[in-house]
């Protein structure tokens, strides 16, 4: 399998290099998305399927869509590189040196690993059997809560900046039937990912991203009322995730005396409930980050 890993990482580096050097925007973004999928494969090889799912859905999918949207609006690459050939070579040597130093620093470590035994020992008390979900929603739920806050602030920022809304355009006759298949499928897959996150790879972020993909298919196909009221509802839904999570953290403190300390025996119910609301909120947020807000009348 080492041979597979070597081929995979070589392909990955080649795609990343293409993404960062091709002068055609669309080709560069395509290479970036392929690199993202190869990275998802690498995560599977590194025994991290939860991260792989998130990378494929968010890192490659949503980010790629965002880049495509912006590329279309900003236009082709203008202006040459900074400096000439010699500057580029100097930068390459510097970056190469740094990357060699990094490799030495990381590969040379074999320190103690206190987390896996601690996670294993407390997994039963966490309420879920997927260790990554246990870390994300219980042991280190505070990180995840703040991460939801990052999403909410990004949403507020994008709404404030108000980039031009994405206008659905006729994508051909196949889009409608395509959306009719994709959207229910996305909802099913999202529900499944959310539920199985407790025991197997999956969870709120992956489910939210899949759901966002389904919603975007709707928006792009021009189906459904994309009016101001819908966007406003999506905004409220996007923000609600943070409010629910903070509210749950405080409510748990009211019940158990510990901030984010779920009541004993009911951990799984709390985690699933929080994750379910986060899924909807993440889907709405990712969707709005892509489509942008509806411009207000006074602009």
């Amino acid at each position: 399998m080492i041979a597979f890993d070597i081929v995979l990482t070589l392909g990955l580096l080649a795609c990343a290099a293409m993404a960062l050097t091709l002068r055609d925007r669309t080709a560069s973004i395509a290479a970036f998305v392929v690199a993202g999928l190869l990275i998802a494969l690498s995560w599977v090889r590194l025994a991290a399927p939860d991260v792989a799912l998130a990378e494929a859905a968010i890192g490659a999918g949503v980010t790629g869509a965002l880049f495509l949207r912006s590329a279309r609006r900003i236009g082709p690459i203008t202006g040459g590189p900074v400096g000439g050939m010699s500057a580029s070579i100097a930068a390459a040597l510097g970056a190469g040196g740094l990357s060699a130093a990094l490799f030495w620093a990381f590969a040379g470590t074999s320190g103690p690993v206190p987390y896996p035994p601690l996670v294993a020992a407390n997994l039963e008390a966490s309420g879920v059997t997927n260790p990554v979900t246990a870390v994300l929603l219980n042991f280190r739920a505070w990180d995840t809560l703040l991460e939801i806050a990052v999403l909410a602030v990004a949403l507020a920022l994008v709404v404030m900046l108000g980039p031009a809304p994405v206008v659905p355009r006729a994508l051909g006759e196949l889009v409608l039937p395509f959306a009719r298949i994709v959207v229910p499928l996305a909802i099913l897959v999202a529900g499944h990912l959310l539920w199985q996150g407790a025991t197997a790879p999956g969870g709120a972020f992956q489910a939210g991203a899949v759901l966002a993909g389904g919603m975007l298919a709707l928006v792009l196909a021009g189906i459904g009322p994309a009016g101001e009221r819908i966007v406003r509802g999506a905004l409220l839904l996007g923000l609600a995730g943070l409010a629910v999570f903070v509210g749950a953290a405080l409510a748990a403190e009211g019940l158990t005396g510990r901030f984010l300390g779920y009541p004993a025996g009911a951990e799984k119910a709390w985690i699933i409930a929080i994750e379910a609301s986060l899924t909807l909120s993440i889907a709405a947020t990712l969707c709005l980050l892509f489509t942008g807000p509806v411009r207000r009348p006074h602009q």
Partner: peptide, 23 residues
């Protein structure tokens, strides 16, 4: 196997990154 804690870090990193990228 992979330590679940850095897996959680990587997941958090992905979500943070898409937020900042969108902004």
């Amino acid at each position: 196997r992979t330590d679940p804690v850095p897996q959680a870090f990587a997941l958090t990193g992905i979500v943070v990154l898409v937020s900042v990228t969108a902004a």
